[in-house]
Design a protein around this nucleic acid. Sequence first.
DNA 1: ATCAAAAAATTAACACTGTTAATATTTTTA
DNA 2: TAAAAATATTAACAGTGTTAATTTTTTGAT
Lengths: 216, 216
Amino acid sequence: MKAEDKKSKRKEDVKKTILNAAKKLFVEEGYQSASIRKIAAEIGVSPTTIYLYYKDKSDIAYALHQEGFLVLKTLFSSLVSVEDPFERLKAIGRTYIRFALESPDFYELMFIMKDPMDHLDADSGEECWEEGKQVFEFLVFTIEECQQKGYFVGSDVSSTALQAWATVHGLCSLFISTHLQKVGEECLSQEDTELLLETAFKTYVHFLEQTKNNHK
Amino acid sequence: MKAEDKKSKRKEDVKKTILNAAKKLFVEEGYQSASIRKIAAEIGVSPTTIYLYYKDKSDIAYALHQEGFLVLKTLFSSLVSVEDPFERLKAIGRTYIRFALESPDFYELMFIMKDPMDHLDADSGEECWEEGKQVFEFLVFTIEECQQKGYFVGSDVSSTALQAWATVHGLCSLFISTHLQKVGEECLSQEDTELLLETAFKTYVHFLEQTKNNHK
DNA sequence: ATCAAAAAATTAACACTGTTAATATTTTTA
DNA sequence: TAAAAATATTAACAGTGTTAATTTTTTGAT
């Protein structure tokens, strides 16, 4: 038993070594360029060794995706102390956007790419998107509390949460895909696209504020 | 002169033949799988011939991206007849979403992938994203008219337009990347993710309606 | 300590990918 | 008809993910 534990622990260590090498190459040159062969060379093993620990490349992508969610969840966890739910909702949005701008590669892996998602329905282990579920439920919970304070009255909580997520994700995703930059340069004569993004977010928050039931 | 015209016209014909083959393979098996070699085989030429007409694969991607915008612009053009600007705004959103759901591959090429966008700053010809600019300006124009009718008072038009775009794009993008499906199954116990998307859109529209200045 | 069994890692290979240089073919022009 | 220009091809480079077969290493029992 003890021996088996040690064995599986060593196996986990190797998995982590591979993942760290993968992460290094991933943040340096992007997902596509972080090839199995490069990862193997980084830690001094043959390419096929990788397959002894990870099913395929999307398996590694999913593991990195999970690491990204660990970071995002940590960032969010410090927001539970924000008592006012609407302030918390705004903070969630700002934190989400900051994360996307600071770690665009990770954001892409977590919320844009299909590859890590394919791993979910294909693989045996986990059947649901646990990471996403947790983050989304924090948003739902916050919106529920907002509703109790008079915001979003008469609106479905799930739909409101989904819509709020879509708005910030849309902004981040357009930023990362450089579509925002292209429109910013030409149509809005505004080079600072981060500012553009932030202003759009503030406009959205302003709209949300107007849903507040004030006649009471 | 006439001869040169004919020559360049023939060249355009070949370009179109290549593009049609590329489009066929693209809609059938996706962008990644639509390889240069397959495109060449489809029209019975050698792979290198493709490079005599298109600089690289992202050049083809951009051409398809442009074709997609031609369709989207046609869809939008029939909305200019909608006189009420807020009704038109809603119609723009619905049309955009329908397009994304009906042609997810094209949507990905037009609004998600970086590849066709890279073509813009790299290549010589066009320096700006003309397609995107036109569609965005239609949105800006409509929102300006909405503002004159009392909507979005005190909000920046550009920011409002960007935010509206981001919201529908976010929904479409989460749908296409299957993230919406994964959250829908687990958190919202709702399999019909198209309905989920539509409901979120309606919730957003409801929020927009609440920005209307009624005390007059 | 030795030797067989199990585990781990490796080499070689398959079937692809985008892309380019050098070469051959076809078409056009004089 | 011959030279020039345009067009297309073959061969090759440098990669990619992935698998089967083989070798090396480690482990556990005698």
